[in-house]
């Protein structure tokens, strides 16, 4: 291996010139052809790996969660699972939980807060003793409107609110979607 390679094998013509233009061209061509040969599977592979970037968001889903009269009148938040039909790649699930929201009633108005903490995606819990929301993963506190309570909150933004529609007859519908975590702005997770 360490010896300089010399044309010692039987198939090579003796007395070939050493490094020449032809030799260089030959090497370059071999490398190029090799790359072209590799490129085809590589490109196909990279395309498939990057396919999630082309996926379009399914958009927000309107979900009926409860009725007005079932929500406590004193403004205590209550957690509701969100069940929708959704496709997980090749499987379509019917009426499966995909997340949850806290609903809170004030008079005839209802506000909805996403249970996912905007910091790192853990689930917040309601703490009745302090009447606030709390995230157990990195100890962020929020008030019932979702405002950050800690002087230095781990969370980059307040809790995410969701659009609520109270329909005639008192049905409470929520426009459910997920948001990216870790950013100061609320960005829909596409």
């Amino acid at each position: 291996m360490d010896k300089p390679s010399s044309p010692a094998c039987c198939c090579c013509e003796a007395g070939q010139p050493g490094p020449s233009r032809r030799g260089f061209l030959g090497t370059a061509l071999a490398v190029l052809l090799g790359l072209v040969g590799l490129a085809a599977p590589l490109v196909a592979g990279v395309m498939s790996v990057f396919s999630p970037l082309r996926k379009k968001s399914a958009g927000a889903k309107l979900v009926r969660l409860t009725t007005l009269e079932a929500l406590p009148e004193d403004g205590t938040p209550r957690k509701y699972p969100v069940l929708i039909d959704y496709a997980d790649a090749w499987t379509t699930f019917r009426n499966e939980p995909v997340g949850a929201v806290f609903l809170r009633r004030q008079g005839d108005k209802v506000s909805a807060i996403h249970v996912i903490c905007p910091h790192a995606g853990c689930f917040i819990t309601y703490n009745p003793g302090e009447n606030s929301f709390f995230c157990p993963c990195h100890t962020a506190h929020f008030d019932l409107a979702g405002k950050r309570l800690d002087e230095k909150s781990p969370s980059p933004r307040d809790l995410d609110t969701l659009e609520v529609e109270v329909r005639p007859g008192g049905e409470v519908w929520v426009k459910f979607e997920n948001y990216q975590t870790g950013t100061p702005n609320k960005v829909v997770q596409a």
Binding site: D88, A89, Q189
Partner: peptide
Amino acid sequence: LGGSLFKLVVGDSEFGNL
């Protein structure tokens, strides 16, 4: 950038089969 990386790792917009 972050959102794209997230999708590349997760293989979808949310955790699932992919």
